[in-house]
Write a protein that binds this DNA or RNA. Structure first.
Lengths: 227, 227
DNA sequence: GCCCGTCTTTACGCGCTCTTTATGCGCACA
DNA sequence: TGTGCGCATAAAGAGCGCGTAAAGACGGGC
């Protein structure tokens, strides 16, 4: 799900975090020292760093700053030091969150989720392009060669369902259920009509579809530039 | 510096936060109840919400969810409940951070800074232009070809809701909930009437809308110059 | 109490969209 | 070569979403 770097000199804590994070589907890398952590982040930035302030080689606060110089990766600080000054310093140096030990694992996992959800590790392109056609999923706008294309509601629904699974085959049933609802998973006639209408409006040559391609006996697929 | 909404039923806490936040250069708005907070966020989203979970009218957790339905504004939760379950629930409902009372003011301010620095510092354009029409979101002023346009209360509400999501499609329900409240999400007749009135006042040719465009079966969208 | 602007509600007709049906084409298979 | 199936395409009727006007209800100011 996400790649997380755990920085702590105590093997026991690392083990505990590795298991907990792993159970939540994350890939865990580990570092024992600040220098090692900084080097790892620089070499291959993870999606999140969990950093214990008490490290043998350098002050944890310095590690926060050092990482921030290279990367904007979110940093979640762990510390036995519950003093307010430490918290303020770490947060102002660029840490995203600060959890005092001993911490509850449920809370920590919740805070990990928070940190990960606001930094979409896979910034999915909200806009799909294919040939001269541009599909803006966020704004629900479709353009062809720069000009906006007028689509009816059903046409839009169908196109966006395909676009959201760009370059993946969707079966007739999947599409019908998504657009017309579970009651119409058999009405493949709808599909043929509307696929055709979209092709008329979007394809350069509707008889030679480049955008919405038929997968015979299976379904349809929207082919993009990057796919 | 930033606009912050403080939600707490205890006047003493509100006062304390108002002074502390004000000293750091923030503009503070206040709400005593959950319903009031949700309404304020909907009407004019602040940059940050500081929310006490213990409110008289509704469960604080519900307030988090209600705000999340309308807005992505960061929410910092305060609570006397230090239980892990409460923390996890609030964070998973979409809160950005959770601070247990009693809290240190220095730590709280540091966490406010964290929440603000990652929130879209991108100063949203306080003024939206489209064709000859200029919409000043801050001052709630609308001009057409340099001349101020008189709009009724509902007309303003509707226009500003659309303008705040400029170039994005808003569904009938979203608009109705924002302007007329949750009880009228079915009254699409309102929408037709008021959209038409705005077009009469703002469009060059009300029969060929360039500003407020209809998305058939979905909703409406305000089209700007930059969009 | 009256006036005027605003909001709400109702009514109507046009035009688009959805649905449905019919027809034709190409391919696989016997 | 005929048959059947899946898909493409065209077309037409029904339904309703939307624009528009206008009357009634409401409320605030003088």
């Amino acid at each position: 799900m996400a790649r997380i770097l755990v920085v702590d000199d105590e093997a026991q804590i690392r083990r505990f975090l590795r298991i907990s994070l792993g159970a939540n589907g994350h890939a865990v890398a580990e570092a024992e020292t600040g220098a090692e952590a900084v080097a790892l982040v620089r070499a291959d930035p993870p999606d999140l760093v969990i950093l214990d302030l008490g490290l043998p080689d350098m002050d944890g606060q310095e590690v926060v700053s050092a990482i921030r110089e290279d990367s904007a990766v979110p940093i979640l600080v762990l510390s036995v030091r519950a003093g307010e000054g430490d918290k303020v310093e770490a947060l102002d140096r660029g840490a995203e969150d600060y959890v005092a030990k001993p911490f509850g694992i449920a809370e920590l996992m919740a805070r990990v989720r928070v940190a990960l959800r606001r930094s979409p590790q896979a910034p999915k392109p909200a806009v799909v392009t294919a040939g001269g056609v541009e599909i803006d999923l966020d704004r629900r706008i479709v353009q062809r060669d720069g000009a906006e294309v007028r689509l009816s509601r059903r046409e839009q629904d169908l196109l966006f369902v395909l676009a959201r699974s760009a370059d993946h085959v969707l079966t007739h049933q999947q599409i019908l259920r998504a657009v017309w609802g579970p009651a119409h998973v058999e009405d493949t006639a709808y599909l043929r009509v509307y696929v055709n209408q979209l092709r008329q409006k979007l394809e350069a040559d509707a008889t030679q579809p480049q955008l919405i391609v038929t997968e015979p006996g299976v379904g349809y697929r929207l082919r993009t530039d990057q796919g």
